[in-house]
Design a binder for these strands. Sequence first.
DNA 1: CTGGTTTATGAACACCGTTCGGTGAACACC
DNA 2: GGTGTTCACCGAACGGTGTTCATAAACCAG
Lengths: 222, 222
Amino acid sequence: MAVLSVKAYSVNMGIAERKERQRAELREQILRTARGMVMREGFAALSMRKLADAVEYAPATLYLHFENREAIAKELCVRGFQDLLAVLEPAAQVEDPLERLPQLAKAYVRFGLENPETYRLIFMEDAKLSTALFADNPEGPGPRSFGVLVQVFVDLLEAGRLEEGTRPDQLAEVLWAGVHGIVALKLTCSGFPGSPAEELTQVLVSTLVKGLPGLKAETKAR
Amino acid sequence: MAVLSVKAYSVNMGIAERKERQRAELREQILRTARGMVMREGFAALSMRKLADAVEYAPATLYLHFENREAIAKELCVRGFQDLLAVLEPAAQVEDPLERLPQLAKAYVRFGLENPETYRLIFMEDAKLSTALFADNPEGPGPRSFGVLVQVFVDLLEAGRLEEGTRPDQLAEVLWAGVHGIVALKLTCSGFPGSPAEELTQVLVSTLVKGLPGLKAETKAR
DNA sequence: CTGGTTTATGAACACCGTTCGGTGAACACC
DNA sequence: GGTGTTCACCGAACGGTGTTCATAAACCAG
């Protein structure tokens, strides 16, 4: 009886494991397919029916794995953000903060321009999506990657190279706004012909660091 | 006969004028209603059917005045941009460029946060929409308002207060990216709790102008 | 083999943007 | 005044969307 029970238990577990695995596999396949469609045609072009067609299931089946379309978007959001984080990682390793800063900025902008649809999904689609990255989990990927930016200024501050009382978090947020602005404008206002994003990134960083080049504060200089 | 034809002509004109006027009025009413719906519930919630209901016409009638939904969006885009321009106008009048700069930035950010749905429509919805503001007309409202930003740095440069060879257009674009980034992040990443937008704007401007506060360039400061 | 649980689905609902053929009223001409 | 024409307007339809639900099939435990 006890033995039988153990056997049944182990068999159950094997079957349950396999089922669980298959379930996770299908979920993964759905996400992979969805990701491909979003990267190719943008999130707006991702329809549940086309997605179901692509994975060769009925549309209703998708709802056994995701609450709705937005849940898929959220998941893709998280994964896209992880990719962004991965791109930032190498730059974050640079020791000198003043060297690290332009590298981070450059990597960020490059990611945005090279993965436009992913970037749009993460940062430009819906406020509810980025919530999954920031508000939901306290130590989620969102705050963690923001921490990378903050660290630049913390390091500068701790080395006594920045004025005391300066707030690293504010500087980081401004930097973030700057690089995001560059990416967002390039992605959205394609009609406006400005300088290349790389140049702008350089100008942004160097101006943030050193201020306006050769600025004379006097009102009248003559 | 001649008189009759003149009379007919004048009557025709009167009728034609009235027709034209009524046509323009309806078009305007559609746009006003659409604008209200967008400002209240966002562009995504604007449907041709609801819009038709609101103006008390059949959906098909809307297509007698606009090619499609996107054409309405484009028109709303242009009008929203004019509002933005109007908000920027007073700040643009400030004489001292170094005083004008923070005022422009402040006005811009304020507009974005006070008119979130309008701002989203203009700058975050679709690349095709902003095309109507920039690429389409060479001296349209888009380039004109960008010129306001450029002017700040042109003035500084012409007064000899900026290093020669500095490119005002690039600085203006960076500034634009900065304020746009602040607005966009606040609108989209509402889950992320950062500093208030006004503070960020101040930090952005002062950092762009003066550089990092008290920065020491030496790698080792001890 | 039986009963119950999980998994998948077809059909439906309520929307959406857009098109098209028809209708009726206002107009122009004789 | 009668007649032909133009034109704003609309009902209905097409093909699409996200989502739900009852039904059926597959599976597995006892």
